[in-house]
Amino acid sequence: MSFEFVTSGKPPISPREKKFSRFLLFFEDVAKVPVFGCQHCGECILSSTAFICSQRCPKRMRNGPCGGTGAGGSCEVYPERKCVWYRIYYRSKMLNRLNLLYKINKIHNWNLEGTSAWLNVFMKRIDAPIWFVRNDKKKVKEMLSDDIQRKN
C-alpha cells in the first residue's frame, strides 16, 4: 500500500518532445498567462483552484492557504496583495466548485517546470483537469474519495 503523491518524473521528457512542448507552451502562455496568471509549473491544477493560479503564492502552496492570511484576505508576505487562496476560495464558492478544494494536489514535479501542461495531460503525466463538476460526478468522487488515491 502506498500513497501516490508525486507525479512520475519518468519517463524523462525526450529532446524531441521538449521542442514540441516549447511550441505548445507558446499557445498555452497566450491563453493562460493573462487570464489565470499562470506560472508555468507544468502541472496545471487550475481546474481545481477555480481558475486562479495558486503558484503565485510566495510559498507556492498547492493545497490551500497558509495560516497567515490576514483580516480581509491580505497575504502574510505581501500585505498589499490578496492571498491567492482567499481569492480561490471565494471564486470556488461563486462557481459552485467548493468540493474540488478537498482534492489533495500532488507534490510538484520540478522536472515538469516550464513544460506544456497540455502536453503533460495528453501524455498522462499529470491528472486531467476536471472541467465540469456536475457532469464529471464519478471523476470528482474518485478525486475526493476518502482514502487518498492508493496504488494497489
Binding site: 493545497n63 490551500g64 492570511t69 490576514g70 482567499y86 467548493l98
Partner: peptide, 12 residues
C-alpha cells in the same frame, strides 16, 4: 485566519 470555511477544508 480567513476564510473560515477554507480552514476546515484544509483541516480535512
Amino acid at each position: 485566519a480567513e476564510p473560515f470555511e477554507m480552514r476546515l477544508i484544509r483541516l480535512h
